[in-house]
Design a protein around this nucleic acid. Structure first.
Lengths: 248, 248
DNA sequence: GCAGATTTGTGCGTATGTATC
DNA sequence: AGATACATACGCACAAATCTG
């Protein structure tokens, strides 16, 4: 149950993907079309199966469209799109992608019993459950840009968090994985349009009554148990959230 | 350049996926874990490669988490999540998923030259470009729930749209594919938190000043050319948009 | 901690089907 | 009709993660 650090060397299809991305960035072919899978296989000395694996990854990321009988078509529009929430697990990385100098400050942790004041509801709440409250403020060029208020369930916390409290982590998902007994698998977010209230006004330095992007989120472990609840608020001037929807 | 109807029979991995989904719905195994790939392969009489293809599809859809060395774990939480924007291309289907009786009414089409009044900008705008304006109002239990205002670029329109104007279509993406010379590959959306203005107030029957979910979108063809721009507004009471973020 | 069994991940080869030009 | 290119499907071997005893 220790979940140690993963392997250092990337699998071949990831290296293939990176090699193909270099080709894309060099823009060395006409019509926004990649060389055929057979040619890539030949020139990189990697089997077509593995090349396909790499291309499927690029397709999932929205970099290319795979067109049966035609080829693999490059989407420069996607490459130029910044602050895609489907591309980052970490808000710091998302802000950096937006061209900012990004940082994060986390609050002291405290225990909470009642989530109602925050408008949150635990679908798996048990009697006397407590939640570890962690507040993170992500800054863009030293200005508060994202307010993340999270409540980690006591029942999923490791016993040895004392040792790990000062371990550096990059994203909140990583922090959650350090704290939680079970690994985080996914988060379901529910969009809640709202206007700036007292708390947000103070934390993000915004005038009250302004419309803001806000969502509530519930994070689940690989065993589908609730690990954490949260409420995220985005500064409307600093953060222009985007999302890619793929049809092909 | 005709883009006819696709094949009727599903590939084997799709049928395998559906068979596995039935197992999931029957809930016939302990610990929320699927039978091993080898067992599924054996019992369905399909090679492990193809079974894996099916499982990878389910993984992408957030139904399962693939855990190396452990198995394929089922996420009932995802199955129970309604109105996921990452699962529907069609707002009518999304509203039906939310338990509503859903329908769509599309406006008469008219030509527009200037997108500025709508807060939209065409990144590939050319001299004298015109846009075909199509307004769709999606209703939930006969109440206006989603306002979709779209502008299709004249330069991408087929010459024979006259014949196709009355062809039934289910989603706006399909309508776009009927109208456009090039197939739609993806849409980039940018979230724009806002409050109800005069237009939205009238179309969605909402009090002015209320916060609403709103986004702007730009649709690209497989050749990465801009096909259509749009602005979508969601009724905050009727539509509870959700989104799945996967970390594993 | 270790050994062995189980299970998924990676990688290759090959053949055939189907869409596009 | 033929060439090209991606899609589907099978089989095999070995690597790596997880669990159990």
């Amino acid at each position: 149950m220790s979940r140690p650090i993963k392997s250092q060397t990337s699998p071949l299809y990831v290296m293939a993907k990176e090699a193909i991305m270099e080709l894309v960035n060099e823009d060395s072919f006409p019509g926004g079309k990649l060389p055929s899978e057979a040619v890539l296989s030949e020139s990189l000395g990697i089997s077509r199966t593995t090349i396909r694996e790499a291309l499927i990854t690029l397709h999932r990321e929205g970099i290319i469209t795979k067109q049966h009988g035609l080829g693999n078509l490059i989407h420069r529009s996607t490459l130029g799109t910044k602050m895609q929430i489907d591309r980052f697990s970490d808000f710091k990385a998302l802000l950096k992608d937006g061209g900012y100098e990004a940082d994060v400050a986390r609050s002291e942790q405290e225990w909470v019993r009642n989530l109602e004041p925050f408008g949150l509801e635990d679908p798996e709440q048990t009697e006397n459950e407590r939640y570890l409250y962690v507040e993170s403020i992500y800054s863009a060029d030293a200005k508060a840009a994202i307010l993340s208020q999270n409540f980690i369930k006591e029942s999923v916390l490791r016993k040895d968090i004392g040792d790990k409290k000062n371990v550096p982590e990059s994203s909140f998902v990583e922090l959650l994985n350090l704290f939680s007994k079970e690994e985080v698998a996914n988060t379901i977010i529910a969009f809640k349009p709202s206007v700036v209230d007292n708390v947000v006004s103070e934390k993000l330095c915004l005038g009250k009554g302004l419309p803001v992007m806000q969502w509530q989120e519930t994070s689940y472990s690989v065993f589908d148990r609730v690990i954490c609840l949260g409420k995220i608020t985005f500064h409307p001037e600093l953060v222009n959230l985007t999302l890619l929807r793929k049809w092909k």
